[in-house]
Amino acid sequence: MNTSTQSIPQLTRSRRRLPSELTILLVLVGISLTFEILGWILQGQSFLANTQRLAIMILQVSVIGIIAIGVTQVIISDGIDLSSGSIVGATAMISMSLAQASSFPRALYPGLTDLPVVIPVVAGLLVGIVCGAINGFLIAYSRIPPFIATLGMMVTARGFAKWYTKGQPISFPTDSFAAIGKGLAPVLIFLAVAAVMHIVLRYTRYGKFTYAIGANRQAARVSGINVERHTVKVYAVAGLLSALAGIVVASRGLTAQAGMGTSYELDAIAMAVIGGVSLSGGRGSIPGTMIGMVIFGVIISGFTFLRLDAYYQEMLKGVIIVAAVVADVYRQRKRVKS
């Protein structure tokens, strides 16, 4: 018998790999413990044993986490979405303009106040889906790189948000609209979105197609997958989730400003990449992104806890993103070599 092919099963059986999510989880534990130790040394108090701090931390990252869930599936399909932050801005403006209370005398549309909460929400989500679908159409049918298509949308949607009220903020939502982002609601929304997307990616045809396209676009096409149509769907879903984040942000802040969501896209991409989603497509998971998100939150919160300057935080964020990508590239290279 042909022993060269027989040796392969033995090879792979002996090489039991840990799921990559577990490695990332260990990184999270390591970082948390580092802050814990530094906390005792520098501040004389615990970093982790503080529920309030943890709650704030989770709240801080949840909104961007919603975007990261959408971005995760985009990156798995071997794409990228730079427009999420701007879509947050645009949807915040539109949904808030349709959610104003009649008690506010200077409403943007005085005839359209006290509308039922579904109207601003649905309008906002539609804006997101349309923006995302435009991204998807451009990428799938005109064959321009995702980076360029979504960069265009990033600038355009931000411009739209500013033009909408000529730069003026919109405030005073109805109570029901304000309830969307109240308290821990953003965390619950995030968890729901993450759970649904996890199931979608693992058990549905949509998920299988997303991984297949990201792993090998040509092979996916030859397998009978309508790659173009699926690409449009993936970006539309990403747009939808960005819009959801926009609605939550506006609701929570009780106001909408054109600048809302600036640079959220980069944070969301960073969360996904830290969580093991490969920028070359086909690899990654929602649990991974969730851990990536918490790592992101722990680092920001830890720096605040250690009273480090906010500017350091920003600089460090850049370093973390690059480090995560370097780790990904390193993993790929190791894989190719062996």
Partner: peptide, 22 residues
């Protein structure tokens, strides 16, 4: 490699990709 396999996916995903489109 170019137009056949999904090299980074597992055997199952590779076998089923065409079937589940239909």
């Amino acid at each position: 490699k170019e137009t056949g396999c999904f090299l980074i996916l597992n055997c199952l995903e590779n076998i089923q990709s065409a079937l589940i489109t239909r």
